[in-house]
Design a protein around this nucleic acid. Structure first.
Lengths: 249, 249
DNA sequence: CTTGCGGCCCATGTATACATTTTCGTTATT
DNA sequence: AATAACGAAAATGTATACATGGGCCGCAAG
């Protein structure tokens, strides 16, 4: 197929590619929160013209990583510790709403079967001994669980808003997955999270809206605890969490 | 070529003015949901070039009134009846979160005094007889109440998300204010709403988070009922609600 | 009639020159 | 010394020409 020589294989347009590139720089800390993005030098550095750069920046503003300055131009958004906590809270509240609506309005059997299958698959990534987890598989399945949960609400709007709330990388359900980190509490948290996955699905199946909502909210607290640990107890882990570079001390 | 004749009446830049103009056309129904916005003809019609037009469209995408088409370009966003209901639900959930956090975290006395003053002022717009209301004043104070409630959360993030959820015009707290409409149920709803305003503030002052949250959610149901009435019972009122032109049958 | 290919058209993507506004240092005036 | 006013530099805003690429139509082969 692609016989055409594209120096940039990944994306089609300069703007699209620039979104990715800028996002990487922002999340990687190369462009810290509060940085003003001057169009001319930045365009030169990226070897594109100002037009696609502005397009890319406006998309990143939609994404919440940049904000428009009052006098024009864009600035890298800056988050405080409290902002991170609150962003996670909102994600939990919205996922809770998705879970509650799913319970109240009911879900199609196929959708229920599908998310139950994800939970079952998640069971499979835990080894015999506590602490044994296939992180890669867990991470992927966890993302799928959260995506399907949002969809269970049966509401495109709710689904979209949940997705949006999780777009801030440190607020995402996969913000901090222990990976190879050798901290017992982190590893244990995966077991707890999985138990909550199960309970949420169960509550939705039983049409227990309030319980489903409360469980989903509590579920988001795991992310909060992990982030709090990273930010307050062991800041050496900051670089392991995408987007935490945006958080000002 | 270089025309220096600039009729910049209202806003500073062409883009800013175009945002306002397009928003008006969208909410007014002149550009119905699903309409693709072709840059060249639209730019000609608005008598600007494509550059500020694209800027304006991207801002409207941030606002949620447009969406980017997969193949490029912008399309006027379209909402179903269910979407309207769900957007109001989300606004209620987020305002509920703001109220709960205010109660849980506590608010500064001055902020509490300020919102209590708004409630007191709102009392003043009701006349002696039921149904007597100064609509203009009510509308303005109601908007202030909701803005201050969001701020009571003490969280910039929550405040911003509440504001965002209310930006979809039909989901806003002032989406459908009876105005001169002579429907008894609508007029009564204002009294009920005001009682809820009072209760929400009271719950926050008493640090009753769950109650504050539940009340704020229920408060949003008034908007839902009113919109449902307009859409299901008396569609002649549709034109009275900004943005309802976007809602497809 | 179907199907696949080729090319044209049109819409968006991009570069760039020019216009306007903002910013900030400097100077003049009180 | 404070401040107002000015102006140069720099940054964003705008217009426009040109590039690119996807979709549609027609034609020809099967």
């Amino acid at each position: 197929m692609g016989r055409k020589i594209m120096k940039q294989a990944a994306s089609k347009t300069h703007a699209t590619r620039t979104v990715i590139e800028l996002r990487k720089k922002i999340l990687g800390g190369e462009l810290p929160g509060g940085t003003r993005l001057y169009e001319v030098p930045l365009a030169e550095e990226l070897e594109i013209s100002r037009t696609p750069l502005r397009d890319a920046m406006s998309r990143l503003a939609e994404e919440g990583l940049l904000e428009r300055a009052r006098s024009g131009g864009f600035v890298v958004r800056q988050f405080s510790f409290a902002d991170v906590i609150d962003a996670i809270e909102i994600r939990g509240v919205l996922e809770g709403t998705a879970a509650r609506l799913a319970a109240e309005r009911g879900v199609k059997p196929e959708a229920m079967a599908s998310i139950q299958a994800v939970v079952k698959e998640l069971d499979g990534v835990f080894g015999a001994n506590p602490g044994e987890v296939e992180f890669e598989a867990y991470s992927e399945l966890n993302a799928r669980f959260h995506a399907e949960l949002a969809a269970l609400s049966g509401s495109k709007i709710v689904e979209k808003e949940v997705e949006r709330a999780a777009r801030l990388p440190f607020a995402s359900p996969s913000a901090f997955l222990p990976d190879k980190t050798d901290i017992a509490a982190f590893r244990r948290s995966l077991n707890i999270a999985q138990e909550q996955h199960r309970a949420i699905v169960q509550a939705i199946a039983a049409r227990e809206g309030a319980r489903a909502e409360a469980l989903a909210r509590e579920h988001a607290r795991i992310a909060r605890r992990n982030i709090e640990y990273v930010l307050l107890e062991d800041r050496s882990l900051i670089e392991r969490v995408p987007g935490l570079a945006l958080v000002v001390a």
